[in-house]
Nucleic acid binder design. Sequence first.
DNA 1: GCAAATTAATGATTTATTCAAG
DNA 2: CTTGAATAAATCATTAATTTGC
Lengths: 234, 234
Amino acid sequence: MKVHQFARGFWEHEPSLTLGCKRLRPLAPKLSNTNSTTSITSPPVTTFDLKSFIKPESASRKLGSCDQNKTDPTSPQGQVETHIPGGTRWNPTQEQIGILEMLYRGGMRTPNAQQIEHITVQLSKYGKIEGKNVFYWFQNHKARERQKQKRNNLGLAHSPRTPTTLLSPSFSCSVITSLDTTKRGEGVERDEEDSPLKKCRSWAFEYLEDQSWSSWKEEEHRTLELFPLHPEGR
Amino acid sequence: MKVHQFARGFWEHEPSLTLGCKRLRPLAPKLSNTNSTTSITSPPVTTFDLKSFIKPESASRKLGSCDQNKTDPTSPQGQVETHIPGGTRWNPTQEQIGILEMLYRGGMRTPNAQQIEHITVQLSKYGKIEGKNVFYWFQNHKARERQKQKRNNLGLAHSPRTPTTLLSPSFSCSVITSLDTTKRGEGVERDEEDSPLKKCRSWAFEYLEDQSWSSWKEEEHRTLELFPLHPEGR
DNA sequence: GCAAATTAATGATTTATTCAAG
DNA sequence: CTTGAATAAATCATTAATTTGC
């Protein structure tokens, strides 16, 4: 089990703290000092102001560039068209969907950050869009194609095989050819079986999103009396 | 090496064919005749350059900036870590873990982007860290506390409550204090049974990570002749 | 005592589910 | 009912801690 003892020293004493042990792993005899990294550098940083954690609020709203005024959810132009008006969810345009599907069909499944960035930039020509939209799209599309296929496979368990209507002949052809052999040769959609383990940190954090702050708030609501860690009054 | 053949054909064929399925009529009118060579010249807006997606980008290793810390010359003595600083995974320091746990104990479960940003800034005082590390930490910690508890519950069907031996009294005390707690001075782990479903887009995408590009590459590797969509060598 | 081998933690990704806008 | 968004569960992967053989 972890011993939080150190924590105490941490908070109440200066940073140089004597880290008793490296990470958790109970009993760590050796770490006598290994964490040089920390200890060494940990000079004057001492103060750890909890308050700062408690009151970020004020939303520094880092950007506003693309974000824009969702503040007024009302009346967007209603239409999808160019940009999504309000602050609701992304409403892809035909072009965007088309491109995304194309990429998907082209084999892309889990674009990495660079790719996402790139795609986003491109797609933004056709309408408002953010990186996460692209990310989610691929996630959802992949998952749903998978389910769909599963359903189909089950559904036509005894049916010959569906003539991949989704893919152009030549296309599907090549597909089948190359991976048909091994596993499922259902021919349906051929998900190309995205590989299980791919390493690829496809994303990272960015500027602050929005006031999801409320979430935490609510959560505390539950923790309630426990830790009125909460920011502004309330 | 990989030829963009596929891509090319893909782009050159009429859209209806490939994207005919679902909704969207991909770029509808688009290249109705482009079928042959790369008469790219995409229409006005349609300038959607696939190449741009394929962009090799040659690992623009963006890092190198603030990393390398460990090898930082300023810390002569700190040599323990001779490893590549930025290449591996985050290795939290005692201080960082301590703070994170405190926040967790304080009720935080799924910090939003702002919070993550804030926390990251604070924690970076104690060592290299990125927003996603914070995000992951909470995800993992939450999940693992959950399983741990589940195991316990199952194991001890009637387990009353654990005698928090893990926390030092003073510690919890101070925490509470600092948090301006008004009630509940228990330092118990109290998982709080985190909330069911909270909506809160706690993150967003950010700058590109790094050469995760390889991932995609690999993927194609499999699809191989299928979709020589791949960039150039690299 | 040390270092390869083993194991326990836990950081990082991916996949499955769930929720809710439209 | 479709699908964007978000979260949780399941996995994969890497490092630190521990063990083991010399």
